[in-house]
């Protein structure tokens, strides 16, 4: 009951502080860890944005934009993990499930091994752009875990 109230209150009394400040922005990267290796090294960006989107495609997405909305949810999950919003396991599972779905569903040629993802936060400081790895997930089997 308390949990439900805590979820409804921000809806009934919204803060409306959109883009109050531009916070560090998450990127999700995934990699396959060979079973005999200690950790991942070849990190691949997850859901990279395309180089260009035509005006027609932008207007089409007004009515049909599921992939991008799902990517925005992944961004929300990454931010929740970085902020330690409990349960972080929920956000970890949501990201992990999507990566495994795509690995298994898009025939990326990955059949075995373990998958890990990490969160890289990009921000600007006095010296320029900075990238910090703030989270690395536990490896999970590519097959049978999604």
């Amino acid at each position: 009951m308390l949990k439900t109230i805590s979820l409804i209150l921000p809806v009934l009394i919204p803060s409306w502080r959109f883009f109050k400040a531009v916070e560090p922005s998450p990127r999700v990267e995934w990699a396959i860890v060979p079973r005999d290796a200690e950790g991942a090294s070849n990190w691949t960006p997850y859901q990279p944005r395309p180089q260009a989107v035509s005006l027609g495609e932008m207007f089409r997405r007004l009515l049909w934009n599921p992939a991008w909305n799902d990517a925005l949810f992944v961004v929300s999950c990454a931010e929740r993990i970085a902020l330690g919003i409990e349960p972080t396991s929920h956000s970890v599972n949501e990201i992990q499930r999507r990566i495994l779905r795509d690995i298994n569903g898009l025939d990326l040629g990955v059949d075995e091994g373990l998958m890990q993802f990490r969160l890289v936060f990009v921000y600007r400081d006095d010296t320029g752009f900075v990238q910090d790895v703030v989270f690395v997930s536990e490896p999970v089997p590519v097959r049978g875990a999604s």
Binding site: P50, Q51, A52, V53, M58, R61, A71, L72, V122
Partner: peptide, 8 residues
Amino acid sequence: FSAYPVSE
């Protein structure tokens, strides 16, 4: 650098 622009 934010995650929002829909293309590079």
